[in-house]
């Protein structure tokens, strides 16, 4: 995950909290590098599917992604802003972005 900065990739910080970190081996913070496809910049949807398919080792994938998108009840904050303000999963990742996934589904 800690690849060198490359021009053909976007490096973002991904954080998990609210109990979601349990699905990612208790990791709270990850550096993720998303490759660009030519001029095409990867968006949050692609990041989510990468996290779900390649990063997440827990078999309960549906606790993170349901029906092709982030499970209802999980908040997504892009640089601290609700992703609804940023175009949701169509938001195009920029170098250094912070993407936070917070579960509201867990108890204390």
């Amino acid at each position: 995950m800690s690849e060198e900065k490359r021009k053909d990739a976007v490096q973002v910080t991904v954080e998990f909290s609210g109990g979601l970190e349990m699905l990612f081996e208790h990791q709270r913070k990850l550096q993720i590098s998303m490759a660009k496809k030519g001029e095409e910049v990867p968006n949050v949807a692609e990041l989510v599917s990468h996290l779900c398919n390649d990063v997440m080792k827990d078999s309960r994938k549906d606790l993170f992604v349901l029906d092709g998108t982030v499970r209802p009840g999980i908040l997504v904050l892009i640089n601290d802003a609700d992703w609804e303000l940023e175009g949701e999963d169509q938001y195009e990742l920029q170098e250094g972005d912070n993407i936070l996934f917070v579960s509201t589904l867990h108890g204390g």
Binding site: G18, G19, L77, D80, S103, H106, G107, G108
Partner: peptide, 11 residues
């Protein structure tokens, strides 16, 4: 989150 409160989540 925005007040950086210290809470614990678990099942």
């Amino acid at each position: 989150h925005h007040k950086s409160l210290d809470y614990f989540s678990t099942e």
